[in-house]
Write a protein that binds this DNA or RNA. Sequence first.
RNA 1: GCCUGGGUGGUGGAAUGGCAGACACAACCGUCUUAAAAACGGUUGCCCUUGCCGGGCGUGCGGGUUCGAGUCCCGUCCUGGGCACCA
Length: 945
Amino acid sequence: MSSESTQQPDFPAYRYTAELAGDIERHWQDYWEKNGTFEAPNPTGLLADPSKADIAQRPKQFVLDMFPYPSGAGLHVGHPLGYIGTDVFARYKRMSGFNVLHSLGYDAFGLPAEQYAVQTGQHPRVTTEANIANMRRQLRELGLGHDQRRSIATTDTEYYKWTQWIFLQLFDSWFDIEQDKARPIAELIAEFEAGARLTPSGEPYSALNEADRRKLVDSYRLAYVSDAPVNWCPGLGTVLANEEVTADGRSERGNYPVFKRNLRQWMMRITTYADRLLDDLELLDWPEPIKMMQRNWIGKSTGARVDFVANGETISVFTTRPDTLFGATYLVLAPEHPLVDKLIGPHWPSHGNTHWTKGFHNPIDAVEAYRAQAAARTDEERTAENREKTGVFIGAYATNPASGTHIPIFIADYVLMGYGTGAIMAVPAQDQRDWDFAKVFDLPVVRTVQPPDAFDGEAFTGDGSAINSEFLDGLEVAQAKQKMIDWLTAHNHGKATTTYKLRDWLFSRQRYWGEPFPILHDEYGPVAVPESMLPVELPEVDDYSPRTFDPDDAHSNPEPPLGRVQEWANVTLDLGDGPKQYRRELNVMPQWAGSCWYELRYLDPTNSQAFVDAEVERYWMGPQAPGHPGGGELYVGGVEHAVLHLLYARFWHKVLFDLGRVSSKEPYYRLFNQGYIQAYAYTDDRGTYVNAGEVIQEDDGTFSYQGQPVTQEYGKMGKSLKNIVTPDDMRDQYGADTFRVYEMSTGPLDASRPWETRAVVGSQRFLQRVWRLFVDEHSGQSRIVDGPVDDETLRVLHRTIAGVREDFELLRFNTAVAKLIELTNHITQYHSQGTPRELARPLVLMLAPLAPHIAEELWRRLGNEDSLTYVDFPVADPTLLIAETIEYPIQINGKVRSKITVPADADEATVQAAALADEKIAALLEGAAPRKIIVVPGRIVTLVK
RNA sequence: GCCUGGGUGGUGGAAUGGCAGACACAACCGUCUUAAAAACGGUUGCCCUUGCCGGGCGUGCGGGUUCGAGUCCCGUCCUGGGCACCA
């Protein structure tokens, strides 16, 4: 490619080739680095820069990309799509009078490096740092304007020191329901000590012994140890979060069996923030689908708790339809429900229905058999669509508190222990699942909402008047709900209740390559490592793997790698009450921890006194107006983080807000979901992937590789699919600027699109045409002239400025590129004798965010000494946006029949007259006056014949 | 099943309810060249007509609102993503 210039004697010596682009790009990358061009000044602290005082005065703009994992495979062309998008936006904002913070750090803890370490014995830090270095190089070569001083990695000791510090903030906090916010745990203890808050048992706090006090206080903490059931995966030797378990009960990674086990694990009390996480979505400029996914995940539903009495036991159920209580004809408990064993009858009632007993001699056997059957099923089988309802009668009855009727109690696997109370009141007339179950077991159906006359379905879930419901009869659903809740409350049978799908966040991992917990254990439980002793550094180990077990051994127990280092795990420390023996927490934090607050560390990465300085945080993240939640102006990333990362990060941020550590309620004000770049892959007749770069499309549309037909697939880029194209390849073949322009021009940032290497040349031709406007390809001489610009070109220029500005603002880079191409082509055609400076200057400035290296080079050739990074973006002259004449299409009955050109300031009557006077129109009207004439100013004339 | 995006030329994609297909790729033709490449210029939604002038049909499909619909409304099909017996 670039070598042609030396082989071909007549090849223009100064053409913008990949080789020349490479020279220019290296030069400017060095220049930017040397001059700290993209280093954004802070208002105070170590990153305040007196030489940039003018920039520090500007309004701020915090542009953020989702935190990448530095993969050992390096980047392919799909990865930088979003990074280039944010870079274009950030550069545009720098030219629009903003102090722009744009950096990129590394979410560098995680499994791949650890697994590599397990296999090779190589310390994960070594691989991680090599991967980061490679990724930094790749990104630098794309010309991304990141502030390198702020490019932290979660594995930096100085960084995870503060991750541990934030963990301690959570550990040392509790959620005050009254105030709806987190408060320091010391305030809780003070309330207990003063007697202002009663202990749950009613005993005075001062009367409790140390163990009970500690236990009580620990039960309030936002970070707490729990014996909750977890997903234990012996094959991996670790506990998995629910999200890491597939629907059929296996590990997402490795596909090993996963067992529900009660284990001691660290949890985060995110559920206390459910309402605020839900409500504050309203304050954010996020795509509606993402908000919807978060709402669904939080899963708030309001209704009532209703208590049913059976054999002296109280069964609480949750229902969203308390108005249908009179129609509750049976109860269903989850098979695992703890009350089942107490309620179970020794014998079948004499009037027992054979459907219900399933041929067992007594309920005890029936329940045992059903439980075994339910446990043996995979989740997939249990949740299969349209599955016949199964269950079994437990030989006991409960009393419906409203109707007083005795209703049978069943267990069934369609009721889940983990949601609500693990028990439901079944109302077959108004719930399809209950209807289905009732049909199988021949249970009574009592309609309590009047369906419409035309209704011929089964369960009726719509609105209607209450029937068969005594004091509710005649009320609509909403009023009936309220009245029933009032009645339940008044008679002590229940009360209004809200439940959430959201669970507390499982926060510990049995791994090595993560942040150690800053926690010690003494005889009473967990104790915080004092702030002065942070960071708790990862010790060296000789084996990085957790102990793994037979994948099917459900009774094995986790043994984290840190447990192998006994001299680290067992320490004697003086925490203020004399030297004492402690055992360190052996788990490490999940990868989410580091990505929950990284954007805050970007703000003040070198601060050794605080995780971020308060004034610095207020400047970059603070609310921009009353009612504004604060947060970064733009956050770009893939939709795959719609729920977990974004929810966890919001949660941590809100805790820090409650504790007065940050001034913003939310970390990410505007969220934008980028699309993905996908690629074609090809398989031969054996199903083996062939090198996609060598596949040829035949004239008949089929594909072949080395003469053999191959089959096309479409999807991800991957090594095994042999369809990887890297930014390094593109830099070598075309140059980084061409690559940037191509990625931005192929579609809107939020659209996924296929990669097509052969189309990249279009972007290169565009930049070559721009280059030719400035430089004579043969002599290298400047083609810039000081001559006048014709009026039409001037108007094109100013329309382009206005359009490009708007497009950049809205991240519509593809149409911005199209407009710049049109302008370039126009200048090429109208000013073939030399490019007027008046056109060259705005063109190069508008191009700069997209193709910064060539723009800097051309800017220098225009005689400027400094970088154009902070030069004002061109502003359109409004008087030049108005055309002198306007061409109106004229429609008759919706079809364009002719066109007229009139002065731009012609009034409607003039336009109308001109339209009617047009020869073709007059001919088509045949002398008759049109029935109607519509003139849309500046747009169109429509006649109705 | 529920919740969400999206269906426009050979391809990626443009289009505040106002001339559908900007811009780009591919394809074809031309200029230049001994030739090729590069570059530059032209043609390119489909169909009829084609010497020219024209005409018809077109944004997944079927309806509707409107002077006018890719855009708004109703229904329907296909498809990407998310959640899933959530009481």
